[in-house]
Design a protein around this nucleic acid. Structure first.
Lengths: 197, 197
DNA sequence: TTGATTTCTTAAACTACATTAACTGCGCGT
DNA sequence: ACGCGCAGTTAATGTAGTTTAAGAAATCAA
C-alpha cells in the first residue's frame, strides 16, 4: 500500500506541471509501487537493468560511477521530491553503468518501464509532464557543465552550498568532494581557507 | 519557402522517434521558418530571448558563455541534424545567458515557442518526440559530466576525437579547447605529446 | 564501554594545467 | 604585393589540485 503523505508529495510535484483529473490521479497511483532502501543499500548496481523511475519520498540517494582507477564520481544526489534512475539504462533496458545508493534509510515510489509506457498511452499528459521534468534536468545539468568549466573548486564549493544549503547538512564531505570533482583532502583545505577569511 | 532537402533531413530525423501521418507532416512543416546565419553571425546573444528551437540543416554552430574573466566556454556544437537553442531562455522566455554563433555559413529550420505549443496541441506525438530528444540529450550531457570528472584533459581530447571524428575537421583547436575546458596552449602541448608516441 | 572502521585534518612533495610572452605561419582585405 | 590580425607553437615560470602518509575525531558494532 502507498502511504498517503508519500503520494501527496508526488501528487503535489506532478500538479506543478500538469493538472490531473481525479480519474487520472487514480490511474497514476495504481501504477506506482513503494519501495524502501536501507542506508547503504543499493537501488541499482552496474550490470543490472534500471527497470523503474524512482521518486524519493523520504531519505537521500546518490548516483555515482567508479572509474578505471577506482575513484567514485557522483552524478547527482536525490532527496525528497527528486526522481532518480540510470536514465540510459532505463531507456534502452541495457546494463546500467552506475550505482544508486541510499545515504540514509530511504523510501521511494517507483514506476516501471512498461507501466510508464501504459501511463503515456492512457494519460498522454504525462508525456508533457516528463518532458518538462527533463527540460529542467537538462538545463540544470548544462549549468553544472558551465559551472565546472568556468569556476575553481573553491567557487564551485561555495556555489554548491548556496544552491543546496539543506543538502550540505546531510552529506559527508567525501561525497561533496566526489560531486565537485576534487579530493576530500583538497576540500578540507578549501574549507579552512574559506573560514580563515 | 523551405528547401526540400532541408525538410527531408528534419523529417527523417523526426521519423526516427515518431511516425507522422501525411497530414501531421504538413501541419509540422507549416510551422517551420527557414533561416540563414553567415559565418561569425549570431543566432542568439546574452540578453536576447531565445524565441525558437533551431534544427541545423547546413553548417555548424557553437553555443558558449563568457565568464566573469572573459573566457569562453563552449556548451555544445551543433552541426547538421542537431537542434540548438538556449533552452533555459526558450522555456522561461527570459534573457539568454549564452551566445549561439555560426562557425560556417549555416542554415536552420526554426520553430517558435508559440508555434511549438500549438504543435503540441495539434499533434501530441510531438510531446513524445521532444521528450525522447531531451532524454538523449540528458544522457549525453550526463556522460560529459562523468567524463569530465573521471578523465584528464589528454584522455578527454582523445575521447572527443573518437566521439566526433567528423566534427574535429571543422573546428579550430581554440574551440575544441574551450569545449574541453583547457587553454589552446595546453591543447597544443597535448597534441604534440600524443603524436610523439 | 570498547575496539574497529571510517571520516576529517594537516603537511610535504608532486603533477596537471594555466599564464605569459615571443615567435611562426596563414588567410584576408586592400 | 603588402601588411595586418588571428590561430597555432614553444618554452619558462606559476598555481590549483593530487598524492601519500600520519594523527585526530567521529561513527558504528557488539
Amino acid at each position: 500500500m502507498i502511504p498517503e503523505p508519500a503520494f501527496n508529495l508526488l501528487a503535489e510535484h506532478v500538479s506543478r506541471h500538469v493538472r490531473l483529473t481525479p480519474t487520472e490521479t487514480i490511474i497514476f497511483r495504481a501504477l506506482l509501487v513503494p519501495h524502501r532502501i536501507p542506508r547503504k543499500g543499493f537501488l541499482l548496481r552496474p550490470g543490472e537493468i534500471s527497470r523503474a523511475e524512482s521518486f524519493v519520498t523520504k531519505g537521500c540517494l546518490r548516483a555515482y560511477t567508479i572509474d578505471e582507477n577506482g575513484f567514485e564520481h557522483i552524478l547527482l544526489f536525490a532527496s525528497e521530491g527528486w526522481w532518480v534512475s540510470d536514465l540510459h539504462s532505463f531507456l534502452t533496458q541495457r546494463q546500467a553503468t552506475c550505482y544508486i545508493e541510499a545515504l540514509e534509510d530511504t523510501e521511494v515510489l517507483q514506476i516501471g518501464k512498461t507501466q510508464l509506457e501504459m501511463l503515456y498511452q492512457q494519460v498522454p499528459k504525462f508525456e508533457r509532464f516528463f518532458r518538462m521534468l527533463l527540460q529542467n534536468a537538462y538545463v540544470a545539468q548544462q549549468q553544472r557543465i558551465a559551472d565546472g568549466l568556468a569556476h575553481t573548486a573553491a567557487q564551485r564549493y561555495q556555489r554548491f552550498l548556496a544552491h543546496y544549503p539543506q543538502l550540505e547538512q546531510r552529506l559527508s564531505q567525501k561525497h561533496i568532494a566526489a560531486y565537485l570533482g576534487i579530493t576530500p583532502v583538497f576540500l578540507s583545505i578549501l574549507k579552512r581557507k574559506l573560514l580563515a577569511r
